[in-house]
Amino acid sequence: MRIRAIALRILRQFIHDKRTMALMFIAPLLVLSLMNLVFNGDKYTPKLGLEKSMVLYADRLASLDVDITTYSDAAEGDAALRSGEIDAFIKLEAAGPKVILEGSNPAANQAVLVVLQDLFSQPEPAEAAGGLQDAPVRPEISYLYGAEEMKTIDRYGPIMIGVFVFFFVFLIAGVSLLRERTSGTLERLLSTPLQRREIVLGYVLGFGLFTVLQALLISWFSIKVLGIMMAGSFMYVLLITLLMALTALTLGTLLSAFAANELQMIQFIPLVIVPQIFLSGLFPLDTLPLWLQRLGLLTPIYYGSEALMDIMIRGKGWSAISLNVMILLGFSLLFMALNVLALRKHRRM
């Protein structure tokens, strides 16, 4: 009942604080809309996979700006494509060369298509085309995920949904516990028979209910209004967004213990939020030093973004995201436990 009391109080505070509500609900929509207008593709070196029978093209590809891997059979190449090791796989079928694009990254798709155009507009090596035709071969092109008309926002949209939810919940939850500390209400709470874990659970419940609404609105707006690509299940998107909010909430309240005022809470943004965004997959990680890539594996946003991309672009289901769900849950539980510990500073029992 006490947990419910805290949750109810937090909800009521939100209802009275219209501006914070607007920040939670409207600001992400504004920024997402802006990104939708602004984003353009950029230069990218595509990674191509070649079936062994197509190895003839290797020489010609070598002159183009492309990374090549050769696979002994089609199955091996398809697997590499599915796991995202390569952007496209070229194999030989009865009807001629066939190209499958991974498809989830519009910048990569574009780069692959440019390379293909260069490759197949040149005269065929005699053997490949059966030694008969002079006319350029037209490869059959298909997409594993995504589609030809996929836009840059389709790629960044899923990441940004997660990032916004994380960012706003982190800040608002952190500041709200911080204000309890500085205004003396936390001490007042601790003078009641309330247990420390009840405070933490109350926060989780109160903000949880609120972020359900936020996650619903942001996901709905992105998918229905902005028309960001959505290949998978809406419920999974909600689940991941909620888990990211939960992680952000517990991390925010935890870090607020190390901030003396609201401004110091804001100072955590460049330290905690921005690096996570850079390592979230928004920018290609392959070009980063290995230690930095590893660091990305320690950040909650990385797992959330990965799962959201799997759901929204690749249409994958539970088996693809289950590990990410567990990791996000693990982060939340860890942070919750640390929150209970951090409150020991104010009351030992």
Binding site: Q13, S183, G184, T185, E187, R188
Partner: peptide, 9 residues
């Protein structure tokens, strides 16, 4: 408490 520990909103 010495400070008015109230939720002002």
């Amino acid at each position: 408490a010495q400070s008015d520990a109230l939720y002002s909103e």
